[in-house]
Design a protein around this nucleic acid. Structure first.
Lengths: 403, 403
DNA sequence: GTAACTTTTTTAGTGTTACTTACAAAGATC
DNA sequence: GATCTTTGTAAGTAACACTAAAAAAGTTAC
């Protein structure tokens, strides 16, 4: 179910070259600019091997010669670098309101971004696919890149996704999005390797690459916004579960969550309470009780409610504190099961300092070890950045295919 | 924290030989007995390569020639097999009451078992270590094996364990068992490679190898007996968490579990209710209310209570049903977070048909997808078998070390 | 200003490995 | 008994990495 490769690897001589090329390419990307001698030192390979492998990479245009560098007391080094502009990567984030794009070079450096709003457009899978293909072509051409230079596209969707097959289970807020074979559809349209992933999973990868979870090997990102879901990274890799629905925590059974009163039937009980709409509704009820004279009673922006709680306003504080207690229960249960090193709180609600403050306070009362808590630091960009992080992992195998 | 190898692999020619030897050894162990020609067909390597690699394995005494087989219409094949008797594996299960042993050949076939009861003995780490070393030597010698033929020892302990360092955190029911460097102690005593693991984790591996979880890549074993804990296998590998405490589910926060009333302070609230002692206590209270005339009121054997529930006796049924509802909540939460393909219920309480029956019934009411539920099928043998399963995974790298 | 030293890179030769092709061994089939 | 089939080995070639040595191109010392 999780795409195990059952083919036992068979060792032929070219495998060595590929292994070593992969190693050197990785070192080159980490180092930025360096000489062959540097690679000899860091890789542990012999000098002739490094020269030979680099010669291969040069003829494949994966590496660019930069000329002489400054001498270190002897012959000056011949500097080289990974040719990040040889190709590009595209990440796409699909939501019910808009589709956003990020174009980067092969080092993950941003080249362009773009956003297309869906209001008034058709949102069937076919229409969205055409939209994505068209916009991708546009931003690629705008950078002076050719179509075949797009090496990978990674798309994030707010849905359970079979990543192996590239099939999106369901997006209820879009037309006809049930069991959509998005990967094969996009592959046909854009012509490069395509990966489709759950958006929260990608957000977690984004936070690991350049956000709040750098260097973590096992952590969980809990996104609380319009929906509630978790992205799980274990021992360095995304974990999906047997049927791709790991992290769908909206239905967790916790103390103080009423199972008898499913306000919104499509949502889990937990989701109904924690999500933006749940908080807004709770706020309306509270303010209605207190009378409409109350400041901000008419507003329904969640961030505004959280801001008020942060400033210490009693009614908002109470609403947020209730949520924090539940989030703390979620974190405790997640920790007991998974023992992550870190929990990242993301999403409109999750990353707000007011919520995180109360959650931390709630967890202090816990008797046993509790993970560190951090606010997601990439905000809306997390999904697109995470998609690029995923694409960066796949490009070595695209750039250096088995012979 | 989880023992990542950061050294980038460097491809030298001997690596090819090792890779191919590993592949052939694996195929040989799966096939039992076969010819070189069979290996050529299944491995994809050329015939000369197979001959050469097998020649290496023959001179290393890892493979045994069996002479000619029956002809298939041409020259008769030269049969060979993996030499399972070249060495042996030892697994050890440490509990507060006894230490049990299992000796197997390199295919995991049982050669001998043994059990040492601890009543009246010293149970300090040093004493236990000496006991294990002595008993290991005894059963190894009894089989006519030499000490250096013991290739690996795997020990299961009822405690949180740092597997990388081989350190046991704490066993409260044994003297002085706090931060015990058991692996290095045992390694010094028995002289072979040693692994120390949590017992529930090993039980899960046992069930995967030859029990209820065969073929599963992501599943959870929940053990309910004297304690409550889970062993987690994700994408084919044991998952330990960032601080080695994944699966310590005894403190889960669930509905209907009172946090205000920790009956036994050393246990989590959940553990206090679900464990054998929790059920026994609840049974005593129930029967006390009903009067002592009741059949079985004096007995405190958990299995007897579960048996009564199975037979439909009302009081026992009620006690068990309460537990089943809680177990169902645990399974639901585990499933939402991890989406395992299977949940194996083990332990004295967990594997009992009465409990499992009620749990299944409870889960039927759940709105969404729920994993398959199975009873652990290996019983008390699970830990020792799982330890052997783990040892079997490590022996290729012992048998064929890098040059 | 030249000789000696350093650092970097390349060349030449050797050893390991697996592959293809050809061949030998040994029984089955006709 | 001649031919086919299957199995296993031998010889030669190609890919690869390694060591040793040399070449390239500077810096440092006197």
């Amino acid at each position: 179910m999780t795409g195990k490769k059952t083919t036992s690897p068979i060792g032929r001589p070219p495998l060595l070259r590929r292994t070593n090329a992969l190693t050197l390419l990785k070192l080159l990307r980490e180092a930025g600019t360096c000489s062959r001698a540097d690679l000899v030192r860091t890789s542990g390979m012999s000098a002739p091997t490094v020269t030979n492998v680099i010669a291969d990479l040069l003829s494949a245009e994966l590496v660019q010669p930069l000329g002489e560098g400054a001498s270190n007391g002897g012959r000056p080094p011949d500097l080289i670098r990974f040719k990040a502009e040889r190709g590009c990567l595209v990440s796409v984030r699909i939501t019910a309101q808009f589709v956003s794009f990020l174009l980067t070079d092969l080092c993950g450096k941003e080249l362009d971004t773009s956003e297309v709003w869906l209001a008034g457009r058709k949102t069937t899978p076919e229409a969205m696919c055409a939209l994505i293909a068209e916009e991708t072509r546009r931003i690629v051409r705008a950078q002076g890149l050719k179509r075949d230079q797009v090496l990978a596209l990674v798309a994030g969707v707010p849905a359970i996704t079979n990543v192996d097959e590239g099939v999106v289970l369901a997006i209820s807020t879009l037309e006809n999005w049930h069991d959509v074979p998005l990967r094969s559809m996009l592959k046909r349209s854009v012509g490069c390797q395509v990966t489709v992933e759950n958006d929260t999973n990608l957000a977690a990868l984004g936070e690991r690459m350049e956000g709040a979870a750098q260097g973590e090997t096992s952590f969980v990102e809990i996104d609380i916004g319009a929906n509630v879901s978790a992205g799980i990274v274990l021992d360095g890799r995304l974990y999906h579960g047997a049927q791709w629905s790991a992290g769908e925590i909206g239905y967790l059974r916790l103390p103080h969550i009423s199972r008898r009163d499913p306000v919104v039937h499509e949502f889990g009980a937990l989701e109904a309470v924690l999500s933006s709409t749940g908080i807004q509704q709770s706020w309306r009820e509270t303010t209605a009780q207190l009378g409409t004279t109350m400041r901000g009673a008419g507003r329904v922006d969640v961030t505004a409610i959280l801001d008020m709680a942060q400033r210490g306003e009693a009614a908002a504080k109470q609403v947020v504190k209730q949520r924090a207690a539940i989030v703390a229960d979620v974190i405790v249960n997640l920790s007991l099961i998974l023992n992550p090193g870190l929990v990242v709180l993301g999403g409109e609600v999750g990353r707000h300092p007011a919520l995180i403050g109360f959650v931390r306070k709630e967890l202090e009362r816990s008797e046993f070890a509790v993970p560190r808590i951090a606010a997601a630091s990439l905000g809306e960009a997390a999904v697109l950045r995470g998609a690029i992080a995923m694409a960066l992992e796949t490009i070595p195998s695209i750039l250096l295919p088995l012979p």
